[in-house]
Design a protein around this nucleic acid. Sequence first.
DNA 1: CATCTTTGATATGTAGGACATAACTACAAG
DNA 2: CTTGTAGTTATGTCCTACATATCAAAGATG
Lengths: 228, 228
Amino acid sequence: MDNNLDADLGRIPHQTMADIVETRLLEYLKKKSFKPGDALPTELDLAEALGVSRNVLREALSRLRMLGMVETRKKRGMVLARPDILGPLERVLDPLIIDQRTLRDIFELRLTLEVGLADLLYLRKTDKDVEELEAIAKDQKNLGGVTFRINNEIAFHGKIYQMTGNDTLKRFQTMLLPIFGYLVALEKVPRMGQVSHLDLVELLKHGTKEEFRQGMLNHLQHHFDKLA
Amino acid sequence: MDNNLDADLGRIPHQTMADIVETRLLEYLKKKSFKPGDALPTELDLAEALGVSRNVLREALSRLRMLGMVETRKKRGMVLARPDILGPLERVLDPLIIDQRTLRDIFELRLTLEVGLADLLYLRKTDKDVEELEAIAKDQKNLGGVTFRINNEIAFHGKIYQMTGNDTLKRFQTMLLPIFGYLVALEKVPRMGQVSHLDLVELLKHGTKEEFRQGMLNHLQHHFDKLA
DNA sequence: CATCTTTGATATGTAGGACATAACTACAAG
DNA sequence: CTTGTAGTTATGTCCTACATATCAAAGATG
C-alpha cells in the first residue's frame, strides 16, 4: 500500500550522540588548525568537555581513526595525523552495494579521466615507461583466455595511469577496477575499440598530445556510445 | 643522531580489536552479498560470534555507520544500506592537513577532469544550460572585488560540471573547491588564461567538441605550465 | 468485525566502573 | 653513559545497567 511512502519521504536522520561528537571533533580540529603530530587532549578530558560518556566519545574517535585523522598511542595520548583520503573510499567500493546511477557516474568519471590524461602523460612519460607499455600491449597479441585478456587490459590502462606520475590518480584507478570488472562482465559481447593498444603506443612514441588523446577517445568510443 | 631511524623503520602498525572487527565485518558483508535493506544480526549476536565485547563491536559498527554502509534502528536491528561514497572524503578534505604531494595530485586530477569533460558535456548540454552559463560568464565583466571574481570562477566551472549530468562528478568538484581556494590563494599574482569564460561559451555554442576541449586546455594552460 | 489502545518484549543508545596493557618518566645500579 | 627498575598515565577492552524507540500481540471500544 504505502511502500513508496517510505521512498518519497525518506527517513528523518536522527542524529545520535556519536554523530554529533564526530562533527564537533572535526570542527574542533579544523578550527584549532592542528598540524600533524600535535597532541590532543585525553579521552577523559574530551568526554568531560563534551558532556558525554567515554563510550560515545570513543565511537566518534573510532571513526576519525579510520579516516586516519587521529592516531592514538597508549600513554602518549592522541595525535593528529595525515588522513588517507582514499582509504575510506576503498572500503565502500563494492559494485553490488552501490546503486546503478552512481555506478554509471563512476564509469563516466573514469572515461573522463582517461581522455584528459594526455597532458600529464606527455609531461612525465619516459622512454622506459613507453617501452614497458609496449611490452604489455604486445602481450595482448597471443591472447589466452578471457581472464588473461581482462588482466592485460587492466595492466595496460594501469600502466598509463602510473606513467602520469600521479600516485593519487593511480590509486584511484586501482580502486575503481572492481567496478569496471563488474560493468564489463555485464556486457554480453565484449566489444573492442577501433584503436588498439599497440596503436596507442605508436601514438605515444611518435604522435602529438592531441593525436594520442584522439586515439584514446576512439579506443573508448564504444563505451561512450552506450552512455546516451 | 638517529632521527632518520624512525623514517627508515617506520612504526609497527598495531592493529586494534576494532580494526580487526571492522575488516571482518566488511568481509562478512561482501561475502554474504547482502542487498540494501537486508537485516543483519543483532549487536549481541555479532559480538558473541566475533568473541569481542559489545563495546568493541560498536566502535567498528560506528565506522560502518559513518560510511553509510549500515543503518541501525532501535528494535528493528541493523540494516545494510547504500553507502555514500563521497561522504567520508568530504570530512577529510582539509587543505591544511593534506600533505603537499597529495594536494598537487588532486590539483592535477581536477585539471585532468576538466579537460576530459568535453565529451560528456556535448552529450548532455541543453540550450538552457548554455544560456545560464553565458549569464555567469557575462557577470564576470563588471568585476567587483577579489571575492567576487573567485565566486564567479567557482560558479562558472561548477556550472560546467553540473551540465555533464553526472551528480557524482559535480559533488566531487564541489568537495575539491576548498583545496582549490587554498592553492589559488597561494599564488602571488593571479594569472588568467588566454581563453576567457566568454570564449568558452562561444565555443560551446558554435564550436565542436574538440575545439571546446582545446579552448579549455588553453584556459587552464597557466596551471599546466606550473606543474613540470 | 474493524479499529484503536495498551502492554510487553527487544535491540539499540548511553552511562559508568573496572582492569589490563603499553609507554613515558624518573631514578637507581652497573 | 648505558641499562634496569618502579611508578604513573592514557588507551584498549570488558562488563553491567538502564533509557528509549519500536514492533508485535493482546485487549478494549465502537
